[in-house]
Nucleic acid binder design. Structure first.
Lengths: 139, 139
DNA sequence: TCCAACACTCTCCTTTTGGTGCGTATAAAT
DNA sequence: ATTTATACGCACCAAAAGGAGAGTGTTGGA
């Protein structure tokens, strides 16, 4: 994926002491967000839009890969609700709908970028761990 | 969660040009990893173990929150397979099993830390987006 | 003698996720 | 007159995720 530098706002907060932050309401909301956002399709769509800017429905589907129309609409709508993407409908025929990341979406994408890079960096290590586990299991 | 500074290895790779990296095998593996790792329970367990170091089965369950035994064992086993946690069985009665992050697990946790902070930082913004969406929807 | 403790496993059940295929609107192109 | 293109919504179905609760093995304590 296209690289995004670590968000300075996030980097500075990494260094701060952990806030008390045990407000259960906030905690629940954060967990809810993580639950929605740490979703396969969300991550893939995020990546596709960050890489290629603005995309129409069908293009987005192709960019993501193996995704059904249903999942695409569903996920993209949820992302719109959460303010991650902007959906622009051009009232023409045939319909033309364009999707772009909002600044909020871009910032999330930057935050996830670290995870993608982690996966790219460590996939061999994981493969080795799996092989080792399988070997021990059989032995 | 406890803060981890951005992994320098990841930060340096952010600045590199995007590798060609269209090897479909690697791509598939990376996507598989993302699929497994970007899972609600995995993230929560990762967080719990990073925060509190070593935990026994039941303690880990409590630290995570609302998780069934089934999901806990299942997820933790997958994480062991992937080399993210080390599982130490003490052959005593009653049984005593301890879970700790491996260095690989720690590095993933650091990568995810950015996403947690993102969620903590932007949850209000998301809430606003949701409210706005709901209002427009009704209008 | 019997229960408690721990870390599970197993079975059964419900919920969620995701796929497939069909329908729709309508202007332009054939 | 018919087809094509686009971005869906909807109904139906299969598969996977996940929860609840019971069972297990062993030993030390009441």
């Amino acid at each position: 994926m296209r690289r995004a530098e670590a968000d300075p706002a996030i980097e500075s907060r990494r260094k701060e002491p952990v806030p008390i932050e045990t407000d259960p309401v906030i905690e629940a909301l954060v967990q809810d967000i993580i639950g929605k956002v740490a979703d396969r399709w969300t991550m893939l769509i995020l990546e596709a839009l960050q890489e290629r800017g603005t995309l129409r429905f069908t293009q987005l589907g192709k960019a993501v890969g193996r995704i059904s129309q249903k999942m695409l609409t569903q996920t993209v709508r949820q992302m719109e609700r959460d303010g991650l993407v902007r959906r622009t409908v051009h009232p023409v025929i045939p319909p033309r709908v364009e999707y772009t990341l909002t600044p909020l979406g871009e910032s999330l994408s930057a935050a996830f970028c670290g995870v993608w890079i982690w996966a790219e960096t460590h996939h061999a290590e994981i493969q080795r761990a799996r092989d080792a586990f399988a070997t021990v299991g059989k032995a």
